[in-house]
Amino acid sequence: MKNSEEAIGKVLAGLRDAEAQAGMERRILEAIEERTSTHPSATPRWAWSLAFAGVVVVCLLMAINRHGQTTTQAQHTVAPESAGTQVATLLRNESITPARAATHLQRVRQTNGADAVLLQEMRAPSHPAPEAPLTAEEKLLLRVVHTGDPQLMAMLDPDEQARKDEAIEAEFQKFAEQSGKDDHESDQITE
């Protein structure tokens, strides 16, 4: 019994007397300073929200623009025989003269010809673009993947990172609430 007590006491004393190597504070401050200078503070959430809203607006504008083009194109890509029908419709309209209708027919035919070229180009078999050289970031990413460091790999997983961030946030909130509650209680006691 004495032996085990003694051994426990010795281990616990060893843990108590553990000393860091001299200059730990300086090393920590230097490392943190270096880290904060190379990694500027995280982008605030509102900035991400603003960026996201910007992207959405740009997408919407592009979609509206494309829709407008498609509608115009659809009006112009009526089958060739319908060009004649359009002219007939125009002629039926009393305000339009035959000479003006002929000009319109010519314009419609020209448009249809241009569309045919576009359609042909669109239906042609596509060839992939030649492989672009890797950027410095991509090369770095490849190196990280090849070394297979589990910690770095986990950092690359956005889900894992998000889970970790959430856990930290929850822990912090819980602690902040708890310490706030404790303060409130102690205030009440002193009152």
Binding site: F175, A176, S179, G180, D182, D183
Partner: peptide, 8 residues
């Protein structure tokens, strides 16, 4: 928000 810095 942290009242007990050491504990935290």
């Amino acid at each position: 928000e942290i009242r007990e810095m050491q504990v935290w």
